[in-house]
């Protein structure tokens, strides 16, 4: 499964709800405002670090750049739209809107 999250975890519980439903081995893609959750040293970092123990977490590069986000949590893979397409090719997808 691929789960996409497009909401800031500081504003909205979507990321937390998603992470509760992630199966071992699933992929989570943070995009749009979801990429605010990819930064290290925040009140939400521990949630992502926990998820990384049994799932893959990706963040969309175009959205990171647009928001000047650096210092990404170690273990998160930065990917582009082509990588997003590959993730969809490899997995069933649920958009956590």
């Amino acid at each position: 499964m691929l789960h996409t999250v497009n909401k800031s975890p500081f504003q909205n519980g979507t990321m937390e709800s998603c992470l509760r439903c992630v199966n071992p081995g699933d992929a989570v893609l943070l995009l749009e405002d979801g990429v605010f959750g990819a930064v290290t040293g925040t009140s939400k970092t521990a949630l992502i670090e926990e998820a990384l123990k049994n799932a893959e977490v990706y963040a969309l590069s175009a959205d990171l750049k647009a928001r000047a986000l650096e210092n990404i949590i170690p273990g998160i893979k930065v990917t582009d739209y082509a990588g997003f397409v590959d993730l969809v090719d490899q997995n069933k997808v649920h958009s956590w809107l």
């Binding site: 509760r20 439903c21 649920h94």
Partner: peptide, 17 residues
């Protein structure tokens, strides 16, 4: 239960939100 949802999703052809 919440832990049933992920496995149910994985069985689907497509999921709409």
């Amino acid at each position: 239960e919440t832990d049933q949802i992920g496995p149910m999703m994985a069985e689907q052809h497509n999921i709409l939100c």
